[in-house]
Design a protein around this nucleic acid. Sequence first.
DNA 1: AAGGGTCAGTGACCGCAATCACAACTAAAA
DNA 2: TTTTAGTTGTGATTGCGGTCACTGACCCTT
Lengths: 238, 238
Amino acid sequence: MRAPYGLNILDNCLTCSVREEHLFCNLSVHAGQRLNEIKSTAVYPKGAMLFIEGQQPRGVFVLCAGKAKLSTSSREGKTIITKLSEAGDVLGLNAVVSNRPYEVTAEMMEPGQANFIPRESLLQFLREHGEVAVRVAEQLSRNYYTAYEEIRTLGLATSPSEKFAKLLLSWSSKNAQNDGSMQVKLTLTHEEIAEIIGTTRETVSRLFSEFKKRQLLQLKGSTLLIRNRPALEKIVQS
Amino acid sequence: MRAPYGLNILDNCLTCSVREEHLFCNLSVHAGQRLNEIKSTAVYPKGAMLFIEGQQPRGVFVLCAGKAKLSTSSREGKTIITKLSEAGDVLGLNAVVSNRPYEVTAEMMEPGQANFIPRESLLQFLREHGEVAVRVAEQLSRNYYTAYEEIRTLGLATSPSEKFAKLLLSWSSKNAQNDGSMQVKLTLTHEEIAEIIGTTRETVSRLFSEFKKRQLLQLKGSTLLIRNRPALEKIVQS
DNA sequence: AAGGGTCAGTGACCGCAATCACAACTAAAA
DNA sequence: TTTTAGTTGTGATTGCGGTCACTGACCCTT
């Protein structure tokens, strides 16, 4: 079966491999079946908005394929990206649980697929399955810690170079190689990186130049190669 | 009964007036009794640390009297205050629920009193009382929204004056008067205000001077009088 | 009254990053 | 191909706010 945007629709993208620890993984058979009944799958093009900051919460989205960025904007148009989400992540959970407007905008960064679970169905489901409700609480707590990390980055780091180094390290730790250096596929524009670390596009551009000159990183096409991790760590806490 | 620090010890400061909506308010009789058994009350002097960032979570503190400030610091000593807590607030909940280190330091800003509930007792209590567990989830969600507001302030507001104006407004909205102007008791030092809005003591001092000159506020002793709320709102979104 | 401590106000200096402006480059569309 | 839109590199300029330094006000202790 062939879907638009060159994606293969997955029959049931809630299915998880055994090792995964996502919110809806490893449920009881009964809970899994019920979940399948209340979810609906859809395919989204690049740029699609799953939901927008300020909207009343309709439900949660479980990302199956593709990446999404979560962001908030001020009235004057300044935007910060607070999180990059990947397959397995649950989006909009806080808003749904607390019945407040979505606090962020979720936009697909590439074509992808997501399961949608309407608010009322989910809440009913949680009432029926206490085991899952506990998982939700844990997920909320994890979200809180992520937010707190963000606060520390924005509030404690002084210079853009410090935040940039921190970002690079967070990327490289996810893709650690066995040898010293490590590489990441760079899918973000300078503009987007700027929105993550709270600076301007030009500054990001200059930071890349500077870090290249200082042998901290290297670019081969869109592949980012971290050359000197210890030096980056030193910049972070300088 | 007379306690040190000029405080009267409250027999049971978990008791709430009917209107209050705190975490442990309006519980069932049974739950309330159980809670009383596992809590212990203590009195703290100004400057006392209830817990420190990075410590393993021992339990939660329910503030009964006095104010506390929650803060995080970087290794180099820079500090940001993320929240000012008052009577009724529950401190350390996230760390206890998720069993991660306290993410903040909680310091008494004035002499006060708090109930301590050990981690294991609380978790057991929550398992026994599903009703309360739900309340906890809601509280966690509220904490998350507070954190998100902080992110917006730090990430989207550009100038210190913007953040300062935002802070003043958040104070004045809590103490709105029927006439146009509104007043607040100012208990924070310039240094502390600086740590809230992420700038330096000197800048805060200059902001006070500037805002006084522009007729936005006025100081009578330690009483802060907001003179021109609309103008402040304009600064926030400028 | 004298001393030490914290806190507040203000001037001088200066460095960093935002802003503006423009050119070079890439990649997909016509 | 040519066009067009989006992205990136870099120079010049400038202003804001951090840093340093010092003074004065206030409070508490001795």
